[in-house]
């Protein structure tokens, strides 16, 4: 059964239609890469899934339960939205770590405030996540003492600490230089095992091709192409996809 079902999501900002009816579903454990040029609505879609934006139309369901229905005003209250967000995690393009907390405190803050377990459980889980992203020796450092790549890895550990069913990445490597991009992508790739479902908005075509199970190509607020990486990259149907891929793999 699909873990995530998104149906006819629409979003306007003023007169600009950013999302013009997005529909797709995702199986548990799958990695979905969303590619497309800037301004095609990729980030807005991710923000809608995390309820940072409220779609004007459409529904979002997780595990068959409708979390959001634009027609139902009850699904818009602060507390309902807060509960809904717990199904998703989000890693931001510019990390957004909490500067006044150490690496360890960044990871334990939300679980401690929301009491997801005993203090010891939260602590040991946080440490194992920090270990997983390869930063255990930095656990007492503050974000300003870390490189961009290290900060992004902390952000990934922080998101994982809340056990989201679906972890979203919003261009996680766009603020990083190529060297640091590699270390972050490796961490994301390593998460791909078993039941962690991920949605990655990315400009890293090689990563999308090699890691993703499904690829969405978005253009002008619609899904132009949806399929396996082989289908989208090797045998694109839409002329827009073909043009975009030609540009992306163009030799300079």
């Amino acid at each position: 059964m699909a873990v995530l079902e998104v149906n006819n999501i629409q979003k306007h900002f003023g007169k600009t239609e950013v999302l013009k009816g997005i529909t797709f579903s995702l199986e548990r454990g799958q990695v979905l890469a969303i590619i497309g040029s800037s301004g095609s609505g990729k980030t807005t879609l991710l923000r809608c899934l995390n309820f940072l934006e409220t779609p004007d139309e459409g529904t979002i369901s997780v595990d068959g339960k409708t979390l959001f229905d634009a027609a139902d005003h009850k699904s818009l209250s602060d507390e309902v939205i807060r509960q809904n967000r717990l199904h998703f995690g989000l890693v931001f393009q510019n990390f957004n770590l909490f500067p006044q907390y150490t690496v360890l405190q960044n990871v334990t803050l939300a679980p401690s405030l929301l009491k997801t377990g005993t203090a010891e459980e939260i602590q040991s889980k946080a440490l194992s996540l920090i270990e997983k992203v390869g930063l255990i020796e930095k656990k007492e450092s503050y974000p300003c003492q870390l490189s961009g790549g290290q900060q992004q890895r902390v952000a990934i550990a922080r998101a994982l600490a809340m056990n989201p069913e679906i972890l979203c990445f919003d261009e996680p490597t766009s603020a990083l230089d190529p060297e640091l991009t590699g270390e972050v992508l490796k961490v994301i790739k390593a998460l791909k095992s078993g039941d962690s479902t991920m949605i990655v908005v990315t400009h890293e075509m090689e990563f999308a091709k090699n890691v993703a199970d499904k690829v969405i190509f978005m253009a002008d607020g619609v899904i132009e192409e949806f399929g396996t990486p082989e289908e989208v990259f090797d045998n694109p149907q839409s002329p827009k996809t073909k043009a975009f891929l030609a540009k992306s793999f163009e030799e300079i």
């Binding site: 940072l52 602060d78 807060r82 967000r85 717990l86 995690g89 957004n96 006044q100 803050l109 939300a110």
Partner: peptide, 25 residues
């Protein structure tokens, strides 16, 4: 805005985000 959003996506409410994340900054 990113500081608030980072708190919200972790499931914190407005008051927690203000007291635990924003205030000290």
């Amino acid at each position: 805005k990113g500081q608030y959003e980072a708190g919200y996506v972790l499931g914190l409410n407005k008051s927690q985000v203000f007291r635990k994340i924003v205030l000290k900054q």
